[in-house]
Amino acid sequence: MNIFRLTGDLSHLAAIIILLLKIWKSRSCAGISGKSQILFALVFTTRYLDLFTSFISLYNTCMKLIYIGCAYATVYLIYAKFRATYDGNHDSFRVEFLVVPVGGLSVLINHDFSPLEILWTFSIYLESVAILPQLFMISKTGEAETITTHYLFCLGLYRALYLFNWIWRFYFEGFFDMIAIVAGVVQTVLYCDFFYLYVTKVLKGKKLSLPA
């Protein structure tokens, strides 16, 4: 555990909590892609199956349970409790174009051809692209609420901090996981355009809106 890893985890946690609170307080999931949230729930479910097979640490177990719990709570709020506010017409990204290739890739390129390892690999690949339905939705409507942009910033920052964590671990522990690193780079790159808009617009007090 190093400072980048810890702050990365906390940034991830902050993102998840921000989204849950935004939906809960406003009693609305307008502007939020339910498809991205289903993908994240799928990511956590397939990645944290090792909860049943091995114990790493209390921190590890607690965070995994919180992430999974919050992911399903978010999906529940969007598709059940506040379903009337869900903007399904703008959430039109075809997720099968992500899930099918990612499934194929995780069977082809993995560390070990075992069910748990393939599912872990699937979750890593899927997480790297799971935000695309949300970004697609914003590009379609041309705007995002400020609180939604804070959520996206924390979510992008988390993976960027993990990149520093992997650099740290490579230098000081000789550890590296090529699958996680490549997917993490892809994931972080997908946020770059958004990071630029966040810094140039949102941090200067303007609403994030894209030119028509």
């Binding site: 890893r5 985890d9 991830h12 990645r47 090792d50 909860l51 097979t53 091995s54 114990f55 790493i56 640490s57 590890n60 965070m63 995994k64 992430y67 560390h111 070990d112 075992s114 748990l116 390892e117 872990w120 993990y162 964590n165 996680a180």
Partner: peptide
């Protein structure tokens, strides 16, 4: 350590 062991990172 086996790769199929539990993962430390989240």
């Amino acid at each position: 350590k086996e790769v199929t062991d539990g993962k430390d990172e989240l």
